[in-house]
Write a protein that binds this DNA or RNA. Structure first.
Length: 260
DNA sequence: ATGCCTTGTCGCACAAGA
C-alpha cells in the first residue's frame, strides 16, 4: 500500500501536474495540501476519473487539504480539535479500508508561523500542541496511523542545505523543533529519516534566488508513523524530479510503502 | 536589510508563503 503527501500550492494551478504525477506514481492514497480552493470548487472529477475517492477541507484562497484514495474513505474528521475559533482549513483525517486492514490517515498543513514576533508564531505553537493531543488520542486506538503533510518544521540542521539561513525563522525555531520532537517522542517514526541517508534530503526549494538550481532546500514535509504502521514500513521516498517540471510546486511529494 | 518567485484575489497592487 503506497501513501503519498504533497503540498501542491494551488489545485487550479497544479491540476495537470498533479494528475500527471498520480498517473506516473499511482499511490493508493494521496494527501494534498494548500489546495487553495473551497470544497464546492475543488475539481474532483478528473481525480475520480483516475479511480480516486476524494474528500476535501478547503477555504477560499488559502490553505486547504484533501485526501484521495482508491479505496473508500470512512469516518472523516475535518478540522483539528482543540480550538473552536480556528477557521483555517489545515487538517483532515479518514480511515482507509484495505484488504489487509484499516489505516487511519491524517493530512495536515501546519501553520508557517512567520514572522515570529507576530501572533502567527504562537498560533503555530498552539496548533502543534493541539496536534500532539490529537495524536495521543489516535495512538490509543492502536490502529495503524500515518500523520502526513507539510509540517513547516526543519527538524535538524542536516534537514537544511544552509541551516544558518533559517535562524530566526519560525520553521527552525527551538520551540518549533521541540514541539516536533515531542510528537516523535509519543512513539512516532519519521519515515524518511528511518529509511534515507541524511545528506541533502529535502522536500522544499524556494521559487526565489535559484534555490532549486543550487539545491538550497529544506526538509519540511514529513510522514510520521505509529508503531503499528512503522512495523509495516517497507520503503519511503521523495519524488524530487517533480521540482524540475514545468510550473512546479515549490514542494515535492513524499511517499511510503506499507507491507501487507 | 530587502527582494529575489508564485498563487489567488470581485487585480489594475497586495497578502501570504517559507
Amino acid at each position: 500500500m503506497k501513501i503519498a503527501t504533497w503540498n501542491i500550492n494551488g489545485v487550479k494551478a497544479r491540476l495537470e501536474t498533479t494528475l500527471t504525477w498520480l498517473k506516473e506514481t499511482a499511490p493508493d492514497v494521496a494527501c494534498l495540501q494548500e489546495i487553495k480552493s473551497m470544497d464546492e470548487k475543488f475539481p474532483s472529477g478528473p481525480f475520480e476519473d483516475l479511480g480516486y475517492n476524494v474528500i476535501t477541507h478547503g477555504q477560499k484562497g488559502f490553505n486547504g487539504v484533501a485526501i484521495l484514495s482508491k479505496t473508500p474513505l470512512e469516518n472523516v474528521t475535518r478540522r483539528l480539535p482543540g480550538d473552536e475559533e480556528d477557521e483555517q482549513a489545515r487538517y483532515i483525517e479518514s480511515t482507509i479500508s484495505t484488504p489487509t486492514g484499516a489505516v487511519r490517515v491524517a493530512c495536515l498543513y501546519l501553520p508557517n508561523g512567520n514572522p515570529i514576533d507576530t501572533p502567527k508564531f504562537p498560533y503555530k505553537l498552539a496548533w502543534m500542541q493541539r496536534l500532539e493531543a490529537r495524536v495521543r488520542e489516535l495512538l490509543a486506538d492502536e490502529m495503524p496511523l500515518v500523520v502526513a503533510g507539510d509540517y513547516n518544521v526543519i527538524p535538524m540542521p542536516e534537514d537544511a542545505r544552509r541551516p544558518e539561513a533559517w535562524t530566526g525563522d519560525a520553521l527552525f525555531q527551538p520551540e518549533s523543533r521541540t514541539a516536533y520532537r515531542r510528537l516523535l517522542n509519543l512513539g512516532l517514526t519519521d519515515a524518511i529519516r528511518a529509511t534515507e541517508p541524511a545528506p541533502e534530503t529535502y522536500t522544499f526549494w524556494d521559487y526565489q534566488a535559484g534555490a532549486w538550481q543550487k539545491n538550497d532546500g529544506i526538509r519540511i514535509d514529513h510522514m510520521l508513523l505509529s508503531p503499528q504502521a512503522a512495523d509495516r514500513l517497507a520503503h519511503a521516498g521523495i519524488d524530487k524530479e517533480t521540482r524540475g517540471w514545468e510550473k512546479p510546486s515549490d514542494h515535492v511529494p513524499v511517499w511510503i510503502e506499507l507491507a501487507a
